[in-house]
Nucleic acid binder design. Structure first.
Length: 575
RNA sequence: GCCCCAGUAGCUCAGGGGAUAGAGCGACCGCCUCCUAAGCGGUAGGCCGCAGGUUCGAAUCCUGCCUGGGGCACCA
């Protein structure tokens, strides 16, 4: 089979664009040399992917950009360049279209060869070397362990985990991290609330703190501790809560969060405790000394300030309160010092809820001040989720009345559907999560559409196995139907999608791509099964054609499974 | 007051200088003697928030305004 394609050396989806650009550039040089085109400076004109497949696979807008300088109508320039594009096995002869596009269409031979590329790559299909093994860290969710995760945290989990997977596919050495806020004021409030609930179980009439956590889960947590440890944590009436109780409560909450995320399919490499920043030899002391040394700290009004206004911020910010306790901001500076300087990540992504927006700029400024490169810190903000139930909008709040936990969501709609929906929207857009709709779990749910395509691909291969048909020696040059070639084109886009996600940090391209890949498959499948001509079925009487199609089916399954995997979804063989 | 995000089909949202602006859902019309119809084909539905500007070309970039959300703590 190798000889069949030996005339097609650039047969690789990854660098076809570059190859085609070089063809166009060569054509321009030849056109100039032949006197068909004036010798003017060339503007940047990367090849585009036409929206409409009728316009080919790639298009150059060079003639449009060249028109003014060359003082010629763009269409004329397009013809001149197109005429000089050298013959190449990867493309059909170029065409031109008004007002001045040069359209390039990949050849059937090139497309067919992609099937072999996909199968040869297998599970690593569409992997890129963009990251070149550089260390990247994605920190996400990192919700305070003062309550169960809610639906909004689920959005952060889906985004962060998919982003981490996409970066790994793009060649980064990726670590997933959860930052456990176990040292701040909210932790104290949590402890006080827990102790109040705990005492209530022993008949003491104590209220929970005014700014405490009123949720029922705190009562359950106290009950759990009482069952396990009895009155071990009970101090004499009126005395403060024993520190050990708060620590135990936090530990139990973190366990619960870890379980929830596990059920969501998210697994971390590292659970990083804020507290450890303050250990002997921890990052906090070191970074404060560094800031002091560099003249970024000022003591006034009894507090210690980071003089960020000197570095372009609107104002200075307190890092150590007048009572001696560090602020959250101080923790975060130390934490990012640890990420960049101590651990040496060259790309750090923080996935935060949009309510942390005000914190972004000053953290970047601080990152620069402590020896990190702010450009390598990407803070990805996602808008909070607006829940809708029964047409009614429900705001998410850990302190408010109604909480929909992530556990409940997973229970009701499944982790695959939940993840898909969360990824579907760009992080910056407020999204509406219609619980009634999601709970339906009907065909309206696009996640089934994508997974069903995978199940169908699997069942075709299964059917072929039953009939002792192997895809091993299929000759893909038999595949010339438009639906077959369209499916290959769609498979080829995956590396582009991964590159886009890994460079723009916009995971919504993943589910959108998955849907169009599934659509291309369904069109392929249906085209053949609906027709009366049995030779058009995937599994036909023509054994050679059948084997060729099975090869395509195998490749399509690999591509679809890959994108599902990056999204953290399962790729079912049966539904 | 200042900063950030959003405003695109009835609904939820993609697209973010190029060719007739897309998808899903909803509506309407077709398609299973079946390799899963959880599917496919088709129709209807848009001054891309408003007004200027830049450009050969603007939903996309710039300016201003309107609307919704978020932020501007010795909270996190």
């Amino acid at each position: 089979m190798a000889t069949l394609y030996s005339e097609c050396p650039m047969a690789n989806a990854r660098d076809i664009r570059q190859h085609l650009e070089s063809l166009v550039n060569a054509a321009v040089r030849d056109a100039v040399a032949a006197g068909d085109l004036p010798d003017v400076a060339l503007p940047e004109a990367p090849l585009e992917r036409p929206k409409d497949a009728a316009n080919g696979d790639f298009a150059s807008t060079l003639p449009l950009r060249l028109a003014r300088a060359a003082m010629k109508p763009p269409l004329e320039i397009a013809r001149a360049i197109a005429a000089h594009v050298p013959a190449d096995p990867s493309i059909d002869p170029p065409t031109v279209a008004p007002p001045g596009f040069i359209n390039l269409r990949l050849s059937a031979a090139f497309l067919q060869r992609q099937i072999e590329e996909v199968i040869a790559s297998g599970a690593s299909y569409a992997d890129l070397a963009l990251g070149r093994g550089k260390k990247a860290q994605v920190e996400f969710v990192s919700a305070n362990p003062t309550g169960p995760l809610h639906v909004g945290n689920g959005r952060g989990a889906a985004i962060g985990d998919a982003l981490a997977s996409a970066l790994a596919a793009a060649g980064y050495d990726v670590e997933r991290e959860y930052y456990v806020n176990d040292a701040g004021t909210q932790t104290d409030t949590f402890s006080d609330t827990l102790y109040a609930r705990y005492q209530q179980l022993f008949g003491r009439d104590v209220p929970i703190p005014a700014d405490g956590y009123p949720g029922e889960y705190m009562v359950e947590l106290a009950g759990e501790i009482k069952r396990e440890a009895g009155d071990t944590y009970l101090s004499p009436p009126g005395e403060a809560a024993p520190a050990a109780l708060g620590q135990l409560g936090i530990r139990l909450m973190v366990d619960r969060i870890r379980e929830t995320l596990g059920a969501f399919g998210v697994h971390y490499d590292q659970w990083y405790n804020e507290k450890s920043l303050y250990d002997a030899g921890g990052a906090f002391q070191e970074v404060m000394a560094l800031l002091r040394e560099r003249g970024h700290l000022a003591d006034r009004e009894g507090a210690t300030w980071f003089t960020s206004s000197e570095l372009g911020e609107d104002k200075d910010n307190v890092v150590i309160r007048s009572d001696g306790r560090p602020t959250y901001y101080a923790s975060d500076i130390a934490y990012h010092y640890d990420k960049f300087v101590r651990r040496g990540f060259s790309l750090v992504i923080d996935v935060w809820g949009a309510d942390h927006h005000g914190h972004v700029s000053r953290l970047k400024t601080a990152t620069g001040a402590i020896g990190g490169n702010p450009e390598n810190l990407q803070v990805l903000l996602y808008q909070l989720v607006v829940l809708k139930r029964g047409g009614e909008v429900v705001r998410l709040s850990k302190r408010g009345g109604e909480i929909i936990t992530l556990d409940e969501l997973i229970e009701e709609v499944g982790k695959d559907a939940a993840r898909f929906f969360f990824l579907l929207r760009s992080p910056g857009a407020q999204m509406e999560f219609d619980l009634d709709l999601a709970v339906k779990q009907s065909s309206e749910n696009p996640v089934f559409y994508v997974q069903y395509a995978h199940a169908r691909l699997a069942s075709m291969l299964e059917r072929a196995r039953e009939q002792r048909l192997s895809a091993e020696d299929g000759d893909v040059s038999r595949l010339t139907q438009p639906q077959e070639l369209a499916l290959i084109r769609e498979m080829m886009r995956l590396s582009d999608v991964i590159e886009t996600v890994a460079t723009t940090f916009e995971p919504q391209h993943l589910p959108h791509y998955a849907m169009s890949l599934a659509t291309a498959f369904h069109a392929f499948n249906d085209a053949f099964k609906q027709q009366s001509d049995p030779s058009l079925k995937v599994i036909t009487e023509d054994e050679a054609l059948t084997k060729a199609r099975l090869r395509l089916v195998l490749a399509a399954k690999i591509a679809l499974a890959r994108v599902l995997g990056i999204m953290g979804m399962t790729a079912p063989d049966r539904m």
